[in-house]
Amino acid sequence: RERFRKVARAGCLVLLIAAGCAVLWGVLELRKHQRRDAADRTLNGEGVISPSWRVSGDCRPRTTAERSRDEAVADLLHHFDHQRVNPGLGYKEQYFAWRWRIAGSSGSCSPSPEHYRRLAGVLVPLGWPKLPTDRSDLELTRRLPPSPALARNLAELAFASHPLPFGPLEYDNRPFARIMLAEQGRFARPWGRRALTEIAPDTKLGTSAATLAAATVPQQAAPRIAAALTAMTQEADRRRKRIEGLKGGPHIVYQLRDGERLFELADALATAGPAAEPHAEPLGQTF
């Protein structure tokens, strides 16, 4: 009887340890899953980035009051140190980065190009934009005159080895920096080859690399972007067949994230210009 009691006790202990291990494993798996979700939200959670041609449009000339306000904000240049991050610099960036034309024809035009030239003259030699904490500085680069130095500064951010989180949801800023680098035109060419190797259909980093490659090495980029589009449509087709096999009838086969990657790839293909035409078949299939 004593022996039976010992065996039972040992058995209970083993069961208890096994149950403890199972609970621990479950908790660790759950935390791993949560970490993976959070990382995915940081890297791919942001909506589609609007390219410049979608942001700008008709505008009305600036009024005298608005021009005088522009002068006043531009004067902050003389009162704040540009070597360090400070509220004066941050406010000025936000002011001049504002999407003046977002309201369409009723919106005011941007401040005078002269203000942007002066800003570029001060900020770009300082290595700006550096580690952005919000979008204003990257939004502002869209309005400054393109230059080799600005392209170099943007490339530092666009190809950083780690995510550059901004905003309360901590979205990664690198894809936006890649789009801004693409808008530097010929000055972005030194990063074209690298972008070409990073084209991917399923991540925001991959689709923004596609835009950069299309803007810099369009002949090589267009077939690769078309291949990425084909990979997406084929995957959607497989999913459709699988769902139809189970339930029958037509189903939505693109999940929201896939749809956004699809828009980004389509826009990247269009960025390649005339080089995109012979490779546009996958886009036609998407329709």
Binding site: F263, A266, A270, E281, L283, G284, F287
Partner: peptide, 24 residues
Amino acid sequence: TYLCAAADRIGGRAAVAASRASFC
């Protein structure tokens, strides 16, 4: 609209496919 605008920018067959799509 992203897809339609991209197809219009590319032109050719892509633009034709877009013109046939009900959502463009």
